[in-house]
Design a protein around this nucleic acid. Structure first.
Length: 875
RNA sequence: GGGAGAUUAGCGCAGUUGGUAGAGUACCUGCCUUACAAGCAGAGGGUCAUAGGUUCGAGUCCUAUAUCUCCCACCA
């Protein structure tokens, strides 16, 4: 028995448990190894264990669950693998924050203790994330749940690292890298965020060594002058042409450095003179390399100045800047200071300024990899929806640089490189070597660094399936079907998965990527882990149920478009769920009042045939839309079919039959109603799985999740057209009644003009008599030859109809109404005339359209004439 | 500096090969009609940002412009 109103709170958990107990989330192939059903596989983007899921995750996972449930019901061998990501740097930052509150630091704790904390953190937050996903209704296979740092994934990482090292794609070297002085680790280019900062441009005088005056250098980073190796001008700059090759004196250090020329220098910026600091600027590094200068390091890894900087050593970089500028001022070496906006490089995790530093790190060669990534797009092995995102992907790969993969962190995959303490030999091995392969020394130490968290993420599509072992899963499910993710990790993750899958597995990891939009809060601000305006989906689910949240996330949200989340929208959308629930209650009521239901598909009335046709259309359209990944439109179609066609019309149509006195009619009517309704539950199950499953269990003993997707017995053209005509008649009657202010409870007579309504139309009307009277409160239908001229006339496709004037009256209203109708028709006629009297239109537009418009024009003229006549006759 | 997206009814949005603008919600009118007032039946409301262009025909294609949002980027 269904409750009085739907109470999702207490039921959803139980339903989820039932699904799990019945192994509903497993691929068919688990129980039937010979299953030859086509696979449909999704690997979940693993949420970071830094915290809990927010609405953005809910959108992402609802979309995946929608696709998985749909495909499962479509008969695919579906597998959805869930998982979580250790999120190396992000989690480490969080743990350090937590330690700080306890007055601890990671150094005080030591590596082993710190890692214990990290694993505990994983238990807590990873566990919570899984719970959140279950609460949302995600039908993923929890037995296959993966964690980027669990044993199996460690194995994958070690294997791939060694493979790429052996093939010389991975190398170690000292290069200029992005360094976060706060997190005290190297970062990749992708992990650096640029923000605009109000700063200054300092114009500093560099005196010529021959005391013939000075050169003015404009810089945004005065504190780096300690590292200057030269100053550079453009070779074509007339102002400085004769100065090239001369020396200037570097202020403070009083060291002579040369003036060189390089194309990199823009004549028009600043003074046209650039100081070159190769060890702390990416451009300067390149210039320095071209001119054979040794970089001079001037900073420590914590962002303070190093011993090279004399009295400024050990001073924070920004303090140094302030004091240095003061000193330069006192030496009269500052020409001027201008306000200047510069993009400041910051760490994507701690948001502090990143420093380019010379450092020995591990890198992955990316040139060949990028080719693989581009090839995937070029050869259409990979399609990104919406299409525009492909450009972003392509652009990044075309400008890629080698990937710095080592991090000076503790929480992560430790790099499997071992160094001989004696001879310095480097060995990359999956297991620690017992002795140096070169000198035999047993004193071997492992590299203390860990890998960029995105290294393990990049292997996700095959590491989750068991790589490097040749598992059944890997053979069966790789490559996967589709990746659903957000746009902001297209470089971090998507591109790298494609590259590494192609490199390691020889195949693109998925053929489609569906990008879901960014979720914003109700003020339009981006919801994110870092900006802390995230809403916990659990809170929303506790209030409104998971189905309401899911529906709201998918309804009216265009593919790839940003989505504004509000509780208000949930309240609006959940009305639909209530509607579904109540129509189920109606079915239950009807079934309770009949002893027998028997579906006889040979005995369908026109309304049954109409609803089956509508169902047929709806399913066809929905299938097509989902295949095109247009989930928004698909949900829209479900909505309008269920509410407009089924609830508003078919339920009403069915009432005379389900309450019929003829037990045979009744049995069949009930059976059909049930059949249609159960199909609706199937149709809706991918969006609102809980309530549909719950209602379904009231009518059958089977689980809805296991059923085949909705289907209709067929399409009946003639009956469908007939019922459409009846619907227009119903609407016309209602409209006319209302326009004459006939109160709904008043039962009136419908007059049919025998001369004007065809035999077939009469048959249709006759078949719909009961329905008509119920839906428009018509007491009886008079079929007349002679109709009083003052009767109230209205026209539909079925012919001319009237009301007795004495039943509806009010001449003034009538006049007003006719005039309004004429006006409406006139404006349409005008538009049509422009078209059909245009010879160009006649000759160039499709003939079919021309014919259609001409017919419409004639129809309108006729209608207009009859209305005008009516107006004349109105007394 | 480069690129992408957005601009449609009061509001938040949909509109996929160009053919007379759509749903939801709000507002207005009338209804507690035995599934549902989280409802039913109706009505109103839009020069589809602006200006040009292509076309018989443009919300839809092209070119500018404006406003907003996002991404990328080493002009010191």
């Amino acid at each position: 028995m269904l409750d009085k109103t739907y109470e999702p709170q207490n039921k959803e958990n139980l339903i989820y448990k039932k699904w799990e107990e019945n192994h509903c989330f497993k691929p068919f192939s688990d129980s039937n190894k010979n299953s030859n059903k086509e696979n449909f596989t999704i690997i979940m983007p693993p949420p970071n264990i830094t915290g809990q899921l927010h609405i953005g995750h809910a959108l992402n996972n609802t979309t995946q669950d929608f696709l998985i449930r749909y495909k499962r019901m479509k008969g695919y061998n579906t597998l959805w693998i869930p998982g979580t990501d250790h999120a190396s740097i992000a989690t480490e930052v969080k743990i350090i924050e937590a330690l700080k509150k306890e007055g601890l630091s990671k150094e005080k704790l030591g590596r082993d203790e710190f890692l214990k904390r990290a694993w505990a953190w994983n238990d807590k937050y990873g566990g919570r994330i899984k719970l959140q996903l279950k609460t949302l209704g995600c039908s993923c296979d929890w037995d296959r749940c993966a964690f980027t740092m669990d044993e199996k994934r460690q194995k994958s990482v070690l294997d791939v690292f060694k493979k790429l090292y052996d093939e010389e794609y991975i190398y170690r070297g000292e290069k200029l890298i992005n360094w976060c002085p706060t997190c005290k680790t190297a970062l990749s280019d992708a992990e650096v965020e640029h923000i605009d900062e109000n700063s200054s441009l300092w114009y500093i005088r560099y005196p010529y060594a021959d005391k013939s005056g000075y050169l003015v250098v404009a810089t945004t980073r005065p504190e780096t002058i300690f590292g200057d190796v030269c100053v550079a001008v453009n070779p074509n700059d007339e102002r400085y042409k004769d100065k090239i090759g001369k020396n200037v004196i570097l202020p403070i250090l009083n060291k002579e450095i040369p003036i060189i020329s390089d194309d990199y220098v823009e004549k028009d910026f600043g003074t046209g003179v650039v100081k070159i600091t190769p060890a702390h600027d990416f451009n300067d590094f390149e210039v320095g390399k071209r001119h054979d200068f040794q970089p001079i390091k001037i900073m420590n890894l914590d962002g303070t100045m190093n011993d090279y900087c004399g009295k400024y050593s050990n001073m924070d970089r920004y303090t140094c800047r302030k004091q240095l500028v003061e000193e330069l001022k006192s030496l009269d070496l500052i020409e001027k200071i201008e306000p200047y906006n510069l993009p400041k490089a910051t760490c994507y995790r701690c948001h502090n300024a990143v420093e380019p530093m010379m450092s020995k790190q591990w890198f992955m060669k990316m040139q060949d990899m990028a080719e693989l990534g581009l090839e995937a797009i070029d050869n259409k092995e990979l399609e990104i929806v919406p299409n525009r995102v492909q450009k972003i992907y392509r652009n990044w790969l075309e400008n890629i640089k080698d990937w710095c993969i080592s991090r000076q962190l503790w929480w992560g995959h430790r790099i499997p490189a071992y160094y001989c303490k004696d001879c310095g030999n480097t060995m990359v091995e999956i297991n620690k070597p017992s002795a140096c392969t070169k000198c035999g020394n047993k004193d071997i130490v492992q590299d203390s660094d860990v890998l960029d968290t995105w290294f393990s993420s990049a292997l996700w599509p095959f590491s989750t399936l068991g790589y490097p072992d040749e598992t059944d899963d890997l053979n069966r499910f790789f490559p996967t079907s589709i990746l659903v993710t957000a746009q902001d990790i297209i470089f971090f993750w998507v591109a790298r998965m494609v590259m590494l899958s192609k490199k390691i597995m020889g195949k693109t990891p998925f053929s489609k990527v569906l990008i879901n939009g960014i979720v914003r809060d109700d003020e339009g601000k981006k919801m994110s882990k870092s900006s802390n305006n995230g809403v916990d989906p659990i809170e929303i689910i506790e209030k409104y149920g998971a189905d309401s949240l899911r529906l709201s996330l998918l309804f009216g949200n265009g593919t790839g478009n940003d989505f504004r989340f509000s509780e208000e929208k949930i309240l609006e959308d959940r009305k639909f769920i209530n509607k579904v629930f109540n129509s189920g209650k109606f079915l239950e009521l009807v079934l309770s009042q009949t002893t027998e239901t028997k579906l006889d598909k040979t005995k369908l009335n026109i309304f049954d045939k109409w609803i089956y046709s509508k169902l047929f259309d709806a399913i066809e359209e929905i299938n097509k839309l989902i295949d095109n990944l247009d989930i928004c439109q698909a949900v829209n179609k479900m909505y309008s079919f269920v509410w407009d066609e089924f609830c508003n019309y078919y339920l009403e149509f069915s009432k005379p039959y389900v309450y019929s006195n003829d037990p045979n009619v009744r049995a069949n009517a009930c059976a059909i109603l049930k059949d249609i309704y159960l199909n609706i539950l199937k149709l809706l199950h991918p969006i609102i799985p809980f309530i549909t499953e719950d209602i379904y269990s009231n009518f059958t003993n089977e689980l809805l999740i296991n059923q085949s997707y909705a289907s209709s017995i067929g399409y009946f053209k003639k009956e469908t057209e007939d019922v459409e005509k009846i619907i227009s008649l119903i609407q016309k009657i209602r409209e006319t009644r209302l326009s004459y202010n006939v109160i709904p409870s008043k039962r009136i007579t419908l007059i049919v003009n025998k001369n004007n309504v065809s035999e077939t139309s009469l048959n249709i009307i006759n078949e719909a008599k009961l329905v008509l009277s119920k839906m428009t409160n018509i007491e009886k239908i008079d079929i007349l030859d002679n109709i009083d001229s003052d009767s109230i006339k209205f026209v539909t496709e079925l012919g001319e109809f009237y009301f007795y004037k004495y039943e509806v009256v009010d001449t003034e209203k009538e006049r007003e109404k006719i005039n309004k109708d004429i006006e409406k028709i006139n404006s349409e006629i005008k538009i049509l005339e422009i078209r059909i009297f245009n010879p160009n239109f006649i000759s160039r537009a499709p003939q079919q359209l021309v014919e259609k418009e001409k017919l419409r024009y004639e129809y309108l003229l006729n209608s207009k004439n009859s209305l005008e006549e009516k107006l004349k006759n109105l007394k």
